[in-house]
Write a protein that binds this DNA or RNA. Structure first.
Ligand code: MN
Ligand code: MN
Ligand code: MN
Ligand code: MN
Lengths: 220, 220
DNA sequence: ATTTATTTTTAGACTAGTCTAAATTTTATT
DNA sequence: AATAAAATTTAGACTAGTCTAAAAATAAAT
């Protein structure tokens, strides 16, 4: 049996190692999980014994294929529940993460596949992140950050890199949501802020914002 | 903070003590929770320290008002999730209990109240058990067991006392569901079996079945 | 190439929850 | 009332997960 704690560690390792490819440091995991490095060492030893991860002392940890499958399954559940909360229970996109953090651990194949069907097989969660299908396949979307968008071009907002509540609320207050059309008017070299047009109003956003907003070019 | 394990013990004590009124034995809890009596003793001590229960050595345990509130809240969540699984995710009534056993521990006021609204404030779960409202108030229904029904009268099936998968599947295979109309044709004194009519077919059910099926008299 | 700083691991302790086996209390039976 | 049986509690041990403090290994700086 896999425990809830093991699942959370595996998910953290997956995310920290850019989707399970790179090796991850003890300290990075400790930071992400809000625990101490010594606790992480104990846990990665256990994950290694259970064949969810490969670990050699002082060398960091990587997920095995088995571990990667667990991670993807949890991410699938997390994102489907987020869609459910927004679409069916009227949660806003800044409220869903915490609850999904718990719902993702409910173990029932039938539950998650029926939920998927009930939601009509969504491809992305409320933050634009892709939802893997039953087989663990992601449908990737081409996207760039606003900071790298071309001045003069028109884009559609398709996701966020930072899904913290404060950032999402900032976007809400500036009428930026998934699907919002954005024209890039000007990039200020001094502070890397970006002037964008939303419908008929223009606003300036900081570099911080520009680095955390994903866009996709709109065909014209 | 209350733990998942504490919640499960509190719920068990509530159910065993006929909805939190009577004192409950250590052994009864151990049996219900599939643990050993010694584990129960440890836990009731802790529940008592945390003011969820009153406990005196060798005297059994009762819930405090605080403990009763916890129990009712978990039962509300359990039953609402059961309705969700049946109504929205096409689970059958014999499949929901196990999953609800886990979902009932998700802690989010907003989640459960929005779920309640989404389901249009159901008053009963798929087994006919009442769902307490936000304030913990139950809407009781008048019901009797088939074993005590009057020969010659017409009833509607409104619930089950045993919601084990095997009993529910038995009812399915005999076309008995919540809402099914049942006429009591004959009670056999020898083995306490009961002959009933369902539409145009008549069947005989054992005493076991007759004791676990709740009915409500149909006005004529 | 040493020394210093940082990262990581170990050692030992703690809590929650569980178990077995023994001791104690209560209840039932003679 | 004494004894036997059943229920309950205690004592001590174990696992999962965590922590602090100290030791060891790696990386950085002189
Ligand atoms: Mn989680
Ligand atoms: Mn998300
Ligand atoms: Mn439960
Ligand atoms: Mn039920």
């Amino acid at each position: 049996m896999i425990t809830l704690t093991e699942e959370n560690y595996i998910k953290a390792i997956y995310h920290l190692g850019s989707n399970g490819n790179e090796s991850v440091n003890t300290n990075a995991i400790a930071e992400a999980m809000q625990t101490k490095a010594s606790s992480v060492t104990d846990m990665v030893k256990k994950l290694s014994e259970k064949n969810y991860a490969d670990y050699k002392k002082y060398q960091g940890v990587t997920l095995t294929e088995r571990g990667r499958q667990v991670a993807v399954s949890i991410i699938r559940k997390h994102r489907l529940w987020e869609v459910f909360l927004v679409e069916k229970l009227n949660f806003s996109w800044d409220e869903v993460h915490e609850v999904a953090e718990h719902l993702e651990h409910i173990k029932s194949e039938k539950l998650i596949n029926q939920l998927d069907a009930f939601l009509e097989f969504p491809k992305h969660d409320p933050h634009g992140d892709p939802i893997p299908d039953k087989e663990g396949k992601f449908q990737h979307i081409e996207k760039i950050i606003l900071a790298k968008a071309d001045v003069g071009s028109v884009y559609k907002c398709v996701g966020v890199d930072d899904s913290s509540s404060s950032f999402l609320k900032y976007l809400d207050s500036n009428k930026i949501a998934l699907g919002t059309v954005i024209s890039v008017l000007h990039k200020e070299p001094y502070d890397n802020s970006v002037k964008i047009a939303l419908g008929d109003t223009a606003i300036v956003v900081s570099q911080n914002v520009a680095k955390n907003l994903y866009l996709k070019k709109v065909e014209s």
